[in-house]
Design a protein around this nucleic acid. Structure first.
Lengths: 166, 166
DNA sequence: GTGATTGCAAAGCGTTTGCACCGTA
DNA sequence: TACGGTGCAAACGCTTTGCAATCAC
């Protein structure tokens, strides 16, 4: 449960960036410092407001671009915020979770009873009163698995088809 | 895992709406029918495009308003779509999940090892190849629990404070 | 009849893009 | 020096709001 310190994160991040050939600019560093030292999830504009105090010439666009880079490198993650998710499915009676196929987009429901134990463990260890939870699995449904395997086969048989695809 | 049929859903939904005093208009019904018969998550504009084929005078605004009503009644749910979630936190090394305090907004990390079993169960039952999962718990952190309890106490002592709040 | 609901148009907001300039490696 | 990175302004797309007309009850 113990998180890294802001310094640890910054050191890790600057190394990760430089190793991959990214430059360490003043603007980028200002954004990183804000993210590394925050104990809560921030929006781009919030990062912008704080980071600008360190580096007044910072542009909001750079915040967006830095965030994208950080996401790509797996150094930051998005936090689920229900209000921003803009696709909808019917609920099924009873508390259920979603299984989404990343290929065909279809959705299935499953019960998450097994989650109770986990939630109790987390609650007792952290002192949290867990009120709600969000669980969603993403993968390939049985049908799309077969379809992907078939297209893999095809590629092996006719490797040129790669270049034939747009 | 078995989902309701579109007809079942529609019947359930119209009852739920009418019981709460919502009117069953042509526009609303068109939106419900699209949602009830879809096996995948839809965006507002997608619902609009399909529903408009049934009822050409439908406006996109009505889709948004109907979705909001349905959410309020718990008849549809939002699906997590990473790209749309616009708050960010640092990742912690190792695969970890988030615990978010709904009051102070702070974020903690916890390991979700217990999830493995659940994912295997789901995978074997459904034929899914689970590739990724999304788990997030929301609640009150220890500190905010105490703070809320205290303010509850205050309210009991001085009930008038309710009206004093803006 | 009447109050909830609708649809249009316009405003609002967060995010992305084009492009010339700048600064890191 | 070269090229990755930046910041401005404008474009963009989704969502919300104001308001008069409409329709379900």
């Amino acid at each position: 449960m113990a998180a890294s310190s802001a310094e640890e994160r910054l050191a890790r991040w600057t190394t990760a960036l430089q190793q991959r050939g990214y430059r360490l600019t003043v603007a980028r560093r200002a954004v990183l410092e804000v993210l590394a030292s925050s104990d809560r999830a921030l929006e781009a504009t919030q990062i912008f407001d704080v980071a600008r105090k360190r580096y007044a010439r910072l542009g909001l666009v750079t915040v967006y671009r830095t965030l994208e880079t950080m996401l790509t490198l797996g150094l930051v993650q998005r936090v689920h915020c229900d209000a921003q998710c803009a696709t909808y499915v019917a609920t099924e009676p009873g508390h259920q979770h979603l299984l989404v196929c990343r290929r065909c987009g279809r959705v299935w429901y499953f019960s998450g009873d097994d989650l109770e134990d986990l939630m109790h463990t987390v609650a007792s260890e952290s002192g949290f009163a867990v009120e709600d939870h969000w669980l969603q699995l993403v993968g390939l449904c049985a049908e799309c698995r077969r379809a992907e395997e078939e297209s893999d086969e095809e590629r092996k048989r006719a490797p040129l088809s790669y270049s034939q695809q747009k």
